[in-house]
Design a protein around this nucleic acid. Structure first.
Length: 478
RNA sequence: CGGGGCGUGGCGCAGUUCGGCAGCGCGCGCGGUUUGGGACCGCGAGGUCGCCGGUUCAAAUCCGGCCGCCCCGACCA
């Protein structure tokens, strides 16, 4: 039999990163811009972001978070106030030094994150414990001058949301930190169909300026880990240097305890790498710009008839994002490949033979199964299959993760697993950062997180052999 | 930032060894025939050969410098 599908993207097994880039470009999610490390987020990709954004934004608002917007530029004097913070970001900060020909009295940095400028405003707004908590999020872009960039995963400028909250005490702030981590977990698993491991970062891996950093970690199709979102308990460090204090009910002046949490367009990269296959993108119905594409097979003699029925079919799919591809210049086969590459969950084929039989042919993107559906039942079947596919994609990704999750008793074993098949690797850890760094040095794997649901540690540290204090999740990471 | 590879019409590439008319496939435009897994025929448009400099009668090709992209490693959402 002849080759059934056209070669247009790199082989996913042989060259995963080339496959990833091919999908990004060929599916028209993004394109390279004439700016170092920057990309253009094209309409099809941006629509995915809008759908994800709308859902996550709704989840934030359900917890009382409001949206606002703060400036792109941050005065150097303000950013420098938190020592650990500036030290962490200094190497990748872009500076604004001139307005026209004139040199500015003070340099501004293009925000790499907004803790300091938002905190500065909180200092003005917060006087009393009655003003707390303050729960604000902003959708914006930030800039970090990374050395090596990859579309969506690591770009010089990227879109994200950053939430910043101020609280009366540590307990309230910590509760918010965990609440937002759970919002991310639910969003990623339920909406993007990406299974994640929630956990706490080690001191080596935490956010510059945070007391504790939590993240949700996902496993990509090539066995590498990706941090999909983070939530930080910042303590009162930022409050102290920025002067965010309030008068408590007991008459004492106190500093607020803060949190911040963020998720970026990196999750678009995760979608590609978790769900994609040899034929390209596979989108969960929840974030698919088109959930259904109708491809009419319309020879000249029956053209009007087929297109008329195709339009009726589209109109009958209320509440579903449907696209009728009636371009005459492309053949049906071309369209099949095109929409599969772009990840549309369901394709409906409608041709003369179907009209005679009073049916359409339904094909699911994830399993490729094709079957005839009577026209009267198409709407109902589409709804059912979209819902089923959402769940199936999650379960498939979860199964892949289970199959690629291992245990390592020592560094040798960890190294062997990484060479052989990568994936998530659990191992005992004594809690010493030196052991963590030694493992990284030798194997390239880092502790992605200390999973929250991990059972009590048993056995010994994989590196030094002392009793394990944690059950750590190791992986090579993006 | 280190190691490797690559920059030639929109995309994928040949040509570079050994200097001598810039080519091929796809795509694009027009006309015609076509439509159940990337249709076919004909005509046509489109290139400062990544950039700057040098050698030469002559440079995509040789020399020097620079820039960009990709892959593999050290830092990050």
């Amino acid at each position: 039999m002849e080759r059934e599908y056209v070669e247009q993207i790199a082989d996913r097994e042989d060259s995963f990163s080339q496959w990833y880039l091919d999908v990004v470009l060929r599916a028209e999610l993004a394109d390279y811009a004439p700016v170092r490390g920057c990309m253009v987020f094209r309409p099809y990709g941006y629509r995915i972001w809008e759908l994800a954004q709308a859902d996550l934004d709704r989840r934030f608002k359900e917890t009382g978070v409001q949206n606002a917007y703060f400036p792109l530029l941050i005065p150097e004097s303000i950013f420098k106030k938190e020592a650990e913070h500036i030290e962490g970001f200094a190497p990748e900060v872009a500076w604004v030094t001139h307005a026209g020909q004139e040199q500015l009295a003070e340099r501004y940095l293009v925000r790499p994150t907004s803790e300091t400028i938002i905190g500065t405003m909180y200092a003005k707004w917060i006087q009393s414990y009655r003003d707390l908590p303050v729960l604000i999020n902003q959708w914006c872009s930030v800039m970090r001058w990374e050395r090596r960039t990859v579309p969506f995963l690591r770009t010089t400028e990227f879109l994200w949301q950053e939430g910043h909250t101020a609280h009366r005490d540590e307990a309230d702030a910590r509760e918010r930190t965990m609440m937002m981590l759970e919002v991310y977990r639910a969003f990623l698993e339920d909406f993007l169909a990406i299974p994640v491991v929630p956990g706490r970062k080690t001191p080596n891996e935490k956010f510059a300026g945070a007391v504790d950093t939590y993240s949700v970690e996902a496993l990509m199709g090539n066995g590498r880990a990706l941090q999909a979102a983070t939530s930080h308990y910042l303590g009162d460090g930022f409050a102290r240097v920025l002067g965010i204090d309030f008068l408590d009910a007991d008459g004492q002046r106190k500093y607020v305890h803060m949190t911040s949490f963020g998720l970026s367009w990196r999750v678009i990269g995760a979608l590609i790498m978790v769900h994609g296959d040899d034929r390209g993108l596979v989108l969960p119905p929840s974030v698919a710009p088109y959930q259904v594409v109708i491809v009419p097979i319309a020879p000249e003699a029956v053209r009007d008839q087929v297109l008329g029925e195709a339009r009726r079919l589209a109109d009958g799919l209320g509440g579903v994002r449907v696209h009728l591809d009636d371009r005459p210049e492309y053949t049906p086969g071309w369209k099949f490949n095109e929409w599969e590459l772009r990840g549309v969950p369901i394709r409906l084929e409608l041709g003369p033979r179907d009209l005679e039989a009073g049916q359409a042919v339904l094909v699911r993107r994830d399993d490729g199964r094709r079957r005839p559906v009577p026209l009267a039942q198409v709407a109902e079947t589409v709804q059912r299959e979209l819902a089923a596919m959402q769940g199936d994609l999650y379960r498939r990704a979860a199964r892949f993760r289970e199959e690629n999750t291992h245990e390592a008793a020592g560094v040798d074993q960890l190294e062997a697993i990484l060479q052989d098949r990568r994936g998530f690797i659990y191992a005992g850890w004594c809690g010493d950062g030196a052991c963590e760094l030694a493992v990284k040095e030798r194997t390239g794997a880092t502790i992605r997180c200390l999973p929250l649901d991990a059972p009590a540690p048993s056995g010994n540290c994989l590196h030094c052999g002392r009793p394990a204090q944690h059950r750590a999740l190791f992986a090579r990471a993006y």
